[in-house]
Design a protein around this nucleic acid. Structure first.
Lengths: 395, 395
DNA sequence: ACCTATTATGTAAAGACTTTTCGTAAGGTC
DNA sequence: GACCTTACGAAAAGTCTTTACATAATAGGT
């Protein structure tokens, strides 16, 4: 239900303003002419002109130089005024904090990475403050100018309040009220969201935009984001926690480090362990010396039979673990990102093969093309979505 | 994205008409006064009066008798004109075809059940035609007056085209173009949808209306519908096919009857088989004589230890099977309907207990309150949704 | 230097709604 | 029958969009 609250003619003007602004956004970063906007919005030219005038006055648009060398009177052209509503995105990882600032058109204005000195919630928070300040300085902005903030954090997040409920990788993190601190510093919408969810959002936007997608982040830990028609599905609050799926077979001993069963079975480290164990009986394989998952996948790609077997086993466990979810959700595609994604086709093919066996019409299995900064990209996107939603509703 | 195409003032009037009609619908079946509508829609009284006048002229509303015994001048009251857009719903089961006709307000105008003479697609189709005709006659309507048709069928349905891709329970069914035949007979929107999905829709509307819900239909077969914020989630087209989840443990021999692994493991028949096998070693249990699943659950409710064990085992298999989907989807609740739902609390508690073990914050597990006709109710709801969507958009 | 074709912008009048405001109608109660 | 309460009706005002027409700015030709 769209739940519109219609009223008098002023509502019309608001709607038209929003439609014009939306059209400019879609055209960004290219400047647009009034006549072009009229065509895009299917409004008449005077109406668009009126809306543009309003938007210029409100600072959403700015006039850019007219195009040279054209027949007829040069058209005045307009672009989004990026400075109108820059957004701040934070990727709060256990070891690194990244802060990015982007303008309305998605243009990056600043990008700051800060290592976290020592492990622990307090040091992490310090790094967040520092990175935030540095990013603001680099972009030449004051905190008051930021129009939306999105912070990505590991763990399970109660998005409505911004509280982190469970974050095994950072001791003491749930006790810190990150959202509260950010809200105190910024007088705008602040969203705290699970990092895998945001990575999913970024990966999916890259992908198609529509449909149902399951975007898996696979590294030392395993998380996933469910994106339906371009929007994050959150369910009761912890959608996508695939790391806690209990895989078939016996588990490596309970580590008690907060990792879920599937993470203990086929997380990056577990893959190395598995490879080492298998290689013990096969001295001709180079796997015994493998120190990271990438080496295992490389060996498999080279045709090392033991490595191929290991990859196949890993893929089988993964496929069996998510098959029920695939049957229930029926995603159009599964996008795999994270450190493991660098494994390439070896893993992908094996996963697809096993899934084909376990589902009715298996979804396509693909790799995310985004390497670094996927989480930050997703955070920026969510923040921009927020701004656009508010803006288009109430500008 | 709401994708509104704003324009001149006539658009305003359309929007207001739609808002008023929507308000009347929400108030249905109670008649409404103009002043009440003004309050509900937050429009002024003259505007509402104008809209009501239009809607009366278009036949969407009708005037009803003013309320007696009131202070002040009696208000003229209006109701939905059910005859304006009746919908037809069909539940095409392997053994029975049910046809229902409902008016805009959801009031049932006709309900016809027809047994299917002999198994097979041809006889099924005959029964559909017959039931449809009888329902139309009973409601005193011609086919041209029907505003939307929804047909529920077992199997996997490609909703966009209305083709049934896979329907093991009715031989030859996928070759029949049910949607095409209905479209030829009715000049309105025709939707063909999986029966479990429609049952889910009905069960969920009963429930809360918002949030993410997984509605399981559990009988001889197993299906589920995913409902997110009141709307059916279809994914790539076969969301909710939980019958094909492969459960842990060894399967009863492949039946080759098109049933999925989970159905073979814990479908109604399989539960009886399991009980019989367990009872073989325990002659004191009455389970050996159980002929249907209900008897097994009844025995468990009575405290028969063997029966309790069987129920627990069934619940465990079910919980393990759907746990990954629960983790990915994070539903607010799981609603269990279908024949097995009559088992009551025994099964429910066992499922909840096992799920608690396998998920992070387990959803509540509940029984659907709808007994007979759940599928038909859902079909009517979907058809009405269709009508309202079209109507509110373009009346 | 001037003129014309071409494209873009500006503006005023008309038309369509909603809103506001005030007057009237239709009941009951005392 | 007077009075109170609630509902209905109609006219005037205000806000937008639309339509139609006039004007501005540039390139290229004469």
């Amino acid at each position: 239900m769209t739940e519109e609250r219609p009223a008098g003619t002023p509502v019309l003007r608001r709607m038209n303003r929003a439609a014009v602004l939306d059209a400019v956004r879609r055209r960004a970063p290219e400047p647009v002419r009034v006549a072009e906007l009229a065509r895009l919005t299917e409004l008449t030219r005077p109406t668009v002109a009126q809306a543009v005038e309003d938007l210029l006055a409100a600072g959403w648009l700015r006039q850019v130089a007219p195009q040279q060398a054209t027949v007829g009177r040069p058209a005045t052209r307009f672009s989004l005024n990026g400075r109108a509503a820059p957004v701040l995105a934070l990727d709060v990882g256990p070891h690194t904090v990244t802060a990015g600032i982007a303008d309305l058109a998605g243009e990056r204005l600043a990008l700051i990475r800060r290592p976290v000195g020592r492990r622990g919630a307090r040091h992490l928070l310090e790094a967040v403050d520092e990175a935030t300040g540095a990013a603001l300085a680099a972009a030449g902005l004051a905190a008051e100018q930021i129009a939306a903030v999105t912070a990505a954090t590991p763990g399970i997040v109660e998005v409505a309040t911004g509280r982190v409920l469970f974050a095994p990788s950072v001791p003491g993190w749930p006790e810190i009220d990150l959202a509260g601190r950010l809200r105190a510093r910024f007088r705008c919408a602040v969203t705290v969201e699970n990092d895998a969810n945001l990575a999913a959002l970024a990966a999916v936007r890259q992908h198609t935009g529509a449909g149902t997608l399951l975007a898996v982040q696979w590294g030392e830990r395993l998380g996933a984001g469910v994106v339906i028609d371009g929007r994050l599905h959150r369910g009761a609050g912890q959608a996508g926690e695939i790391g806690f799926i209990r895989p078939i077979g016996d588990l490596p001993g309970p580590a008690g480090d907060g990792r879920g069963p599937l993470e203990r079975a086929i997380g990056a480290g577990a893959i190395v362990d598995l490879a080492r164990r298998r290689a013990a009986g096969h001295p001709e394989s180079g796997l015994a010396r493998a120190t990271d998952a990438a080496a295992v996948f490389a060996a498999a790609a080279d045709g090392d039979p033991t490595a191929v077997e290991v990859v196949d086993r890993v893929a089988a466990i993964f496929a069996e673990a998510i098959a029920p979810a695939v049957l229930v959700l029926s995603p159009h595609a599964i996008v795999i990102g994270g450190g493991i994604a660098r494994a390439g086709a070896v893993l992908l093919d094996a996963v697809a093969r096993h899934l084909a066996d376990l589902t009715l019409t298996p979804p396509s299995v693909e790799l995310s093309e985004l390497a670094e900064g996927t989480v930050l990209t997703g955070a920026i996107q969510l923040a921009l979505d927020e701004v656009w939603r508010d803006t288009l509703a109430g500008c």
